[in-house]
């Protein structure tokens, strides 16, 4: 009968990182660092209550791009096919950047409006809540 024990040393258990060798965390290369995106930052955009778009959509965008380019270029291109788009009134849109309500300055850059790498921009269009009000 084999009765090999593997009682282990306490300090190994108490280490925050469980790894075979010490120094694992320091040796790790995180894949989605800002510098890996060739000067762009990843920005996520989401139209609330329009879940026919299955999730927020992702773009690599220059941090100095004006916020207004979202409503002039990106949103018409990528959300324009939704029947609600035709009735969209930009004056009434409610914005959130990383979960916080925001009144973005359209002429200022994404960065100046507080949009960072992997920020999430949500917009809600009161009165427009999807196909036949179904949030789709």
């Amino acid at each position: 009968m084999v009765g090999g024990t593997n009682e282990i040393k306490r300090e190994e258990v108490e280490m925050a990182v469980v790894a075979l060798k010490p120094g694992y965390e320091e040796a790790v290369d995180f894949r989605d660092k800002h510098e890996n995106f060739h000067g762009n930052q990843v920005v996520y955009l989401h139209w609330e209550e329009h879940l026919s778009f299955c999730s927020a959509i992702a773009f690599p965008l220059p941090p100095d791009m004006p916020f207004g380019a979202l409503i002039e270029e990106l949103i018409p291109t990528y959300y324009g096919m939704h029947p609600d788009y035709q009735s969209l009134n930009w004056e009434q849109v409610e914005w959130k950047i990383d979960g916080k309500p925001s009144t973005p300055d359209m002429s200022k850059s994404l960065a100046e409006n507080g949009v960072g790498h992997k920020s999430l921009i949500c917009f809600r269009t009161p009165g427009l809540n999807g196909y036949r009000g179904s949030c789709s």
């Binding site: 299955c54 999807g130 789709s136």
Partner: peptide
């Protein structure tokens, strides 16, 4: 019926008009 049928019905209408719905941006993962 409440949440998903309308989504498919909207897409069906769009297909019928020759405007099949594609998401042309990449999703947040």
């Amino acid at each position: 019926d409440k949440y998903y049928r309308p989504r498919f019905e909207m897409w069906r209408e769009m297909e019928a008009k020759g405007e099949r719905f594609y998401n042309n941006a990449l999703p947040q993962l």
